[in-house]
Write a protein that binds this DNA or RNA. Structure first.
Lengths: 152, 152
DNA sequence: GTTCATATTGCATATTTATTCATTGTCTGT
DNA sequence: ACAGACAATGAATAAATATGCAATATGAAC
């Protein structure tokens, strides 16, 4: 039972190639040594939240949800893809942190876990976190307290 | 032969609703007085380059390519039904935008896409968006930069 | 190991979507 | 108005995708 590996390979193939049907995808996977049926592939694609979009060349091709395209194999970008952190900016005694789509809440969770006195609380959307500083606390203090969760 | 109108309506429906199948879409169109078969709808969707993507609520739903512009055949409802926008109010250098339930994140996405210098970021819930203005920026500037995504 | 609970899968089939072929509708030039 | 060319459509059917069910595998608790 090699579901995990199969899922990884499916993602790779969909990202690198224009795949027009499950049958086509199945052939590619079988070339790589996987053994299974179309029913399984249908379930896999559902699990991976793959969709199908219009393509000039092949009619319809499979694609993965947006956040997939940010997963880079380039080590220089690893930091971003691991934590999802993109940027931080201040206004007043609040900080606005930008993350990759979907990463905000997990990132905010880390911030909350710091239990920093300086930080009153956080509000997380999908790709943005609002960090509310305690009254009288200066942005430099907020930044310092956030240090542990920010990429170096 | 009302292909054009039908296409417009299909786009509206797809934009505004989560449509899971051609059959479902066909019912909605027939309620609006269109008469045709599934074969035609399949061709229409191909022509409109519609795709299908994963959706938490309905499994798979149709969507239009990014560059597709929304055109409503009912001008009166366009404002609210297109964007879901309901109201905007300010406090300090933040704006609170109210939308129809479920519309906040897609509306916030449009705001983010503006990439406005004046706007540090947005946090979206289900029907409310908090827009954080850059320090020193006044509400009038924020309002101006939001202009492109607000109903006229 | 044995048992129970749950996950994974294939097979067969249902459901959904695309296409072929024939027909009808629309437009243009005369 | 008529003929010819082509677009649009429906009916039937093919192709593609999803799912119910039963069998098998996996892991946890004992």
């Amino acid at each position: 039972m090699n579901k995990i590996e199969r899922h990884l390979e499916i993602r790779n193939i969909i990202k690198e190639n224009k795949v027009g049907s499950q049958e086509e995808l199945m052939e590619l996977l079988q070339l790589r040594g996987f053994k299974f049926t179309q029913a399984t592939l249908s379930r896999d694609l559902k699990y991976l939240k793959a969709g199908k979009k219009s393509d000039a060349e092949k009619g319809m091709v499979y694609f993965l949800p947006d956040n997939e395209k940010f997963v880079s194999s380039d080590p220089a970008r690893e930091v971003v893809s691991e934590s999802g952190f993109i940027s931080i900016e201040f206004t007043g005694n609040m900080a606005v942190i930008k993350t990759l789509p979907g990463f905000a809440s997990s990132f905010a969770y880390k911030i909350d876990a710091l239990n920093a006195y300086e930080i009153l609380g956080t509000v997380a959307g999908d790709d943005t976190i609002l960090v509310i500083g305690r009254e009288g606390v200066h942005r430099q203090n907020i930044l310092l307290s956030l240090r542990p969760v920010l990429p170096r």
